[in-house]
């Protein structure tokens, strides 16, 4: 087996843990699809599939970013609040800009720019505090979670921030339209996922994230710019939160204190279900995508089929997360 030509091909080196650890999430997803299809004939219909995918896209886009943060040994609890805050800032900026730019493409582009910049700034702030000031990621992002949640509630004065009615009408297609029947959120999610998978598996950035998460010392001794890399993971995540918000705002055209509640937990759960190791060192973006879909499908199936109350959605998701981690650990111990 030590013959060089055997494995000289492009294929990544074969991993010995094929088993349940790698295929588990995929099998679970297939099982859920089969279950859904058998329970409700509309399950695989165009309307339902589009609905499930579009609703997955917000969490999905964020979870792709979260995969890098967790792979590099970090965590970000602030993304849900951050999304709400970015949405609030975006809506207020757009409303303020309506008299200047009028209703049109310029206004929407300006709003998108604001969202991306706000997301980037929030991610950078987390990153600087964690990588440069060296406060634990859990603490920094826990604090940020409270701060952004409170700020958006304050900006909305306890109520709801609504986008200018006409602007909302103009912006709406960004959520509801698309090309060839595939809506924009799904397209953006797919692009982010593909780019993320490529970045994780085929670029120095992804390789370095895994090295940092596996052993920071080794990364440091191997000339990896550890601080900058760690900061970059949070900045990327912040940007993706901005992007997710861009897709989210046209859906309802409003933001409030309850926007994005528990998104951080769903995103982290999706990452973990997908097989990324919580303490870092190994991550896979495609797994995260599968994890997001699993969580959305559970919700969808409970709503479509009236066997189990949809109110138990959270309980079932919780069981799945714990189960996923148990499977991960067993995959490890057989190493």
């Amino acid at each position: 087996m030590s013959n060089a030509t055997d494995i000289a091909a492009e294929a990544p080196a074969p991993r010995r843990r094929f088993s349940l650890h790698v295929l588990g999430p995929v099998l679970a997803l297939i099982a859920l699809i089969a279950l859904g299809a058998s329970l409700n004939s509309n399950f695989l219909g165009y309307g339902n599939v589009t609905n499930v995918l579009a609703r997955s896209s917000f969490i999905g886009i964020i979870a792709v970013g979260m995969t890098f943060v967790i792979t590099a040994g970090g965590i970000d609890l602030s993304v849900g609040s951050m999304a709400a805050f970015v949405a609030g800032v975006m809506i207020m900026s757009m409303n303020a800009l309506v008299p200047v730019l009028g209703i049109g493409v310029a206004l929407v582009l300006a709003g998108m720019g604001v969202a991306l910049i706000a997301g980037l700034a929030a991610g950078l702030l987390n990153g600087v505090l964690i990588a440069k000031v060296r406060i634990e990621a859990f603490i920094v992002t826990l604090g940020a979670m409270g701060i952004y949640r409170s700020l958006v509630t304050w900006l909305a004065d306890g109520g709801t921030l609504s986008l200018n009615f006409e602007a909302r009408g103009f912006y709406r297609p960004v959520y509801y339209d698309g090309i060839l029947g595939v809506t924009w959120p799904i397209i953006v999610f797919a692009l982010v996922a593909i780019l993320g998978e490529l970045a994780m598996r085929h670029t120095p950035f992804g390789r370095h994230c895994a090295a940092l998460g596996a052993n920071e010392q080794v990364a440091r001794y191997s000339a990896v710019k550890v601080d900058r890399l760690r900061m970059a993971t949070y900045v990327v995540l912040g940007l993706l939160v901005g992007l997710a918000t861009i897709m989210y705002v046209p859906r309802l055209g409003s933001a409030s204190g309850s926007t994005g509640v528990l998104w951080e937990l769903e995103a982290i759960a999706a990452v973990i279900i997908g097989g990324t190791v919580l303490k870092g060192g190994y991550g896979r973006v495609w797994g995260t995508v599968v994890g997001v879909l699993i969580l959305s499908l559970i919700d969808n199936i409970l709503n479509l089929a009236s066997i189990v109350s949809p109110y138990l959605n959270g309980a079932i998701q919780g069981v799945i997360v714990i189960l996923a981690v148990v499977l991960q650990r067993e995959g490890k111990s057989t190493d």
């Binding site: 080196a13 120095p204 390789r207 370095h208 895994a210 090295a211 596996a214 052993n215 010392q217 080794v218 990364a219 440091r220 001794y221 191997s222 000339a223 990896v224 060192g281 190994y282």
Partner: peptide, 22 residues
């Protein structure tokens, strides 16, 4: 503790320091 990523394969360890050459 500082030289090798014990949980990673040989290739990833080998090229980590000079990854930009690849």
């Amino acid at each position: 503790e500082k030289g090798l990523l014990l949980g990673k394969n040989l290739t990833q360890n080998l090229t980590l320091l000079a990854l930009d050459r690849f």
